[in-house]
């Protein structure tokens, strides 16, 4: 008996959009330091990020929806990071890869920003210095789950967040 496909199907558009978005994340590799090499290793043949639909690294922020901040961000680089983040179209997510991007790591010095989440929104933190490729892949899987759970077609989940959710910058404390 042949499979009969109904002429009309009813489904909510949100899960459909989430399913599409979650499985075709196009990363913007904002690779500055050591983590960038592990990001390359994640893309190379052994770990093969393509298995999770996130292998299409686009170096133009206009084509990306996932920013991976891999490596420390310093004073001179932060305005560049913010500009690239604002250039990315909605919906967009951010993974802070490694200890330096998440918190400054071992570089508690005059030049290094102590966590990019002080200045741009971050969805997922990956610990490690640098994280193993498996950890980055896990972060992408977790992010996919998050998108599937919370995403809406219009992206209203972003509009509701008017406040910066990360730890406050020191000068505001």
């Amino acid at each position: 008996m042949a499979l009969t496909i109904p002429d009309v199907m009813l489904a909510r558009l949100d899960p459909l959009a989430n399913w599409v978005r979650a499985n075709s994340l196009w990363p913007m590799p904002f690779a500055t330091a050591c983590c960038g090499i592990e990001l390359m290793a994640t893309g190379a043949s052994k770990h093969d990020i393509a298995r999770f639909g996130a292998e299409v690294m686009r170096f133009s922020p206009r084509q990306c929806d996932l920013m991976i901040v891999a490596g420390r961000v310093v004073m001179k680089m932060l305005p560049v990071l913010q500009r690239i983040w604002t250039q990315m179209p909605e919906p967009k997510w951010c993974i802070s890869m490694g200890a330096c991007a998440s918190s400054g790591g071992v570089f508690d010095t005059y030049a290094v920003v102590q966590g990019v989440d002080r200045f741009i929104p971050v969805d997922m933190y990956v610990p490690g210095c640098p994280p193993r490729p498996e950890q980055l892949i896990q972060a992408i899987i977790d992010l996919q789950a998050k998108i599937k759970q919370t995403g809406t077609l219009q992206g209203t989940e972003f509009g509701k967040r008017t406040e910066h959710k990360g730890p406050l910058p020191m000068h505001l404390n």
Binding site: D108, T109, F119, T162, H164
Partner: peptide, 29 residues
């Protein structure tokens, strides 16, 4: 930048220059 960072009278963690940036929130970007 106005200081010379490797001089010994400049502190290791700076004088707060690294925190001196605008914050971009979700709603703004």
């Amino acid at each position: 930048f106005t200081s010379f960072p490797l001089r010994k009278d400049y502190p290791l963690r700076g004088r707060g220059e690294r925190h001196n940036f605008a914050v971009i929130t979700r709603a703004e970007s």
